[in-house]
Design a protein around this nucleic acid. Sequence first.
RNA 1: GUCUCCUUCGUCUAGUGGUUAGGACACCGGGUUUUCAUCCCGGCAACAGGGGUUCAACUCCCCUAGGAGAUGCCA
Length: 489
Amino acid sequence: MSVRVRYAPSPTGLQHIGGVRTALFNYFFAKSQGGKFILRVEDTDRERYSDESLQDLYDTFNWLGIEWDEGPDKGGEYGPYVQSERFDLYKKYAQQLVDEGKAYKCYCTAERLENLRAEQQKDKKSQQGYDRHCRELTAEQQAEYEAQGIKPVIRFKVPLEGKTVFNDVILGDVKRKNKDISPDPVLLKSDGFPTYHLANIIDDHFMKISHIMRAQEWLPSGALHVLLYEAFGWEPPAYCHLPMVMGKDGQKLSKRHGSTSLRDFIAKGYLPEALINYVSLVGWSYDDSREFFEKEDLEKLFVLEKLNKAPGVFDYKKLDWFNGQYIRKLSDEDLKSKIVPYLQDAGRVNNPPTSEQENMLDGLIPIVKERLKLLSDIVPMTSFLFGDLAEYPVEDLVPKKKDTSAALDILKLGRSLIEKMTELDDEQLEEEFKALSESSSYKLGDLLSPLRVAVTGSRVSPPLFASIRLLGLDKALERIDSAMVILDK
RNA sequence: GUCUCCUUCGUCUAGUGGUUAGGACACCGGGUUUUCAUCCCGGCAACAGGGGUUCAACUCCCCUAGGAGAUGCCA
């Protein structure tokens, strides 16, 4: 059997980390099996639909470098791949179920349903959900409702007895008594749009989907879907419910845990390779030691057998670590091109950069590369190079266990050495400082610290000498001078 | 409330009846280093609990507890 899997998002919001992982697993599974990965847009919720969401979907996967074999923009043998364009199909099959007595029209109003739910909640009744009010309506009753102009929904007749079992690739047999299944869910809404349950089954069937890989939050719907397949007389695909991605508190990952939309991750400066690598490792593993996987590796190595059952907590710190690792793997040129937009957005660099800025950037890359976790870190890390120095606490100029006069002394000594920068390279300059350290009572660190603060405004910075060269010796000396003025007061 | 699923270090995980229970992130030390970072070395730290089955259980079975998800004319 040839593998055909699908990612079927609903364009009602931004793509988030959980959805992306589901898509990735589907994609990797398809690739590793020589199968097809399909994108299907489930836009049946016209109230929450937005064009922006749809665009975000494309932007996200473009950024990830994931391509589908069939989809709305690509076409394919089993299209259209947008559910709103497949209306006739849903209507036809819903009607078929009604004709066969496997589904029925329901005329209950939204108000009645609301009241029902409120009552059930209040009484803590074990029976929750629709009370099957319209399941056995007579033709006369139906005609009466129709005469009132009520637009019915079509509900599925869930069997009252027996049980439904389906096999999940990860979880094994999942059993459920039919009486515990959501009572007669809506298949076709009153506006003629299908619900997820209906559209999903029909599309998966006609698109010849072989495996349904989706998050475990869908597990409770599994039995219902199998029942639906049976009602149509179709063979259900294999099920594979993926463990969910949780926040730190163990709850379903959401905005309150931090950024969850891919758009946010992109903006912060995560690399697609880092994100793909990390995300693939929550709920899946390869073996007991390997942890670096690029997209191409996963396309070959991914196997269903290594999928995990238990939910996993999304660890932002580990993602950051991966990102740092991947940044360090970038060539200087690559890193430069990825960093420039951040500097431009911050108004530090022109678009395109001036030749002077290009030089500055070239010098910058080697000294920041191993210090970046996120691409966006470049902005605060290099602010001292662009424009005026921000205010810093005067006491930062004074090394620990030293006093103001010592700091002043150091600045003066250091300044005279820094001046020689034009003739010396960094190594030689460092030797000079070491010599000074030995001939004075100052440790090397104490010697450099006040200069660092004077020039960069912070006790933490990229290597001092390289920073000064990028800044320009004149400017650096000016800053040292004004630091001495401040200390002198 | 009901149903379903889940349960190895703080976190992600390896493990498939006999292991000093391994790795990674985080954290804590130490080294390299002009600060920071990188890099290197070391440390901390787990089989939810209780019953079985077995010569032997993290691994198999049962129960309990805890967690999560679902319970919509949302997906």
